[in-house]
């Protein structure tokens, strides 16, 4: 019962956070100087039809919300209007219908463009994160077990260095090295213009494109996971129940596996969740460097092309993804921890 209530409260919280992000997104794009909604109308790339579509879509002649005609410049408006007939509500309704506007650059719906990109991003992040977590935890376990030895010190220095590497720069260096020395592709997801005879050939090509971005991802995040695992495990290994396990005559390996790791996993899950924001930051940089057709790369392109609808859509989708992943981590945590699970 307690766990059901917990799940429900997490769910409500996640929905609330998503609503907050949507509002923030609205305010950013309507208040800050530059006002892309209006400013976009003057974008020479847009056709007359597109401009009209934007007007209708944003409801630009309507008040922003009750009592506010315009936020930038500030202009109060009538309060006694139908709240469903304001810019803010129109914005929410559009979002609910999955409508994120038309890209200035491609003149295609943003939602449609992103529906492909999100899977590419998930593939890249997922692969990199899994590798980084496994390797980082392994190194962290080793460093914690052998705390204060030379091995531990070396692992610590490596982690601090890895943490200090700007992701995009490591990507550039690996790209430079990999494409020149190893003949790996310089970017993209699949070699363009190639007709793959079968799925295996396509997967092989995909794999070759994935090597460098995944390697970058893994190195950048490995260090942090190692540091976290190391300090968490040292804390757990200092607990009394580890001494009990040792007094029982259990072997070191068994103590690590059955007693220490089970406990250390709990803070790890929390920290992986907190890290998700950085994960997205990593995706933006890596996808930019490797021209990977994902959401992060879209952010990079949109900045360069001043493609505000795309930028807005990508930001929203990235934020919602992180919020949902956080929710998932929360639920995994309450499932892993018997103190929460059983009552």
């Amino acid at each position: 019962m307690k766990s059901l209530r917990l799940i429900a409260s997490r769910l409500v919280w996640a929905i609330f956070t998503i609503l907050f992000v949507m509002t923030l997104n609205f305010v950013i794009f309507r208040v800050l100087p530059g006002d892309p909604a209006r400013g976009g109308l003057r974008d020479p790339r847009l056709t007359r039809e597109a401009i009209e579509a934007i007007r209708v879509r944003f409801g630009l002649e309507k008040p922003v919300i009750n009592c506010v005609q315009s936020l930038n410049p500030w202009e109060p408006g009538p309060c006694a209007v139908n709240p469903f007939d304001t810019q803010f509500f129109i914005y929410l309704r559009n979002l609910a219908q999955g409508e994120l506007g038309i890209s200035y650059h491609t003149n295609r719906p943003v939602a449609e463009m992103m529906s492909q990109m999100i899977w590419n991003t998930i593939l890249l992040i997922g692969l990199g994160q899994i590798l980084a977590i496994i390797l980082g935890m392994g190194l962290g376990i080793l460093a914690a077990w052998k705390a204060r030895t030379r091995l531990d010190f070396g692992a610590l220095l490596f982690s601090l260095l890895a943490w200090s590497l700007p992701t995009f720069w490591l990507g550039i260096i690996l790209l430079f090295w990999g494409s020149n020395q190893l003949g790996l592709p310089i970017g993209g997801r699949l070699t363009p213009g190639v007709d793959f005879p079968n799925t295996a050939a396509m997967l092989k090509d995909l794999g070759r494109h994935l090597v460098l971005p995944t390697l970058t991802y893994t190195i950048v995040f490995l260090g942090e996971y190692m540091l976290i695992m190391r300090s968490t495990l040292i804390d757990v290994l200092s607990e009394d129940f580890i001494l009990t396990a040792k007094a029982k005559g259990l072997h070191t390996f068994q103590i690590l596996k059955d007693h220490a790791l089970r406990n250390a996993m709990l803070p790890m899950v929390t920290l992986i969740a907190i890290n998700l924001g950085f994960t997205v930051a990593g995706a933006i940089q890596i996808e930019s460097v490797f021209s990977w057709p994902g959401l992060g790369g879209a952010v990079f392109d949109a900045v360069g092309q001043r493609d505000y609808p795309m930028l807005q859509g990508a930001f929203l989708l990235l934020a919602v993804t992180v919020i949902l992943a956080n929710l998932a981590a929360d639920l995994v945590y309450s499932w892993l921890d018997p103190r929460v699970r059983t009552d």
Binding site: F241, T244, K248, G249, D258, H259, R262
Partner: peptide
């Protein structure tokens, strides 16, 4: 030798027991 011939009851059973392992398996593993 440990536990087979010489066992120990630690002070503060709350901390001496692993919170995420069932009591039965903590006894059973010994």
């Amino acid at each position: 030798i440990r536990w087979r011939h010489m066992a120990m009851i630690f002070q503060g059973a709350m901390n001496a027991l692993n919170p995420v392992v069932t009591v039965g398996s903590q006894i059973g593993e010994a």
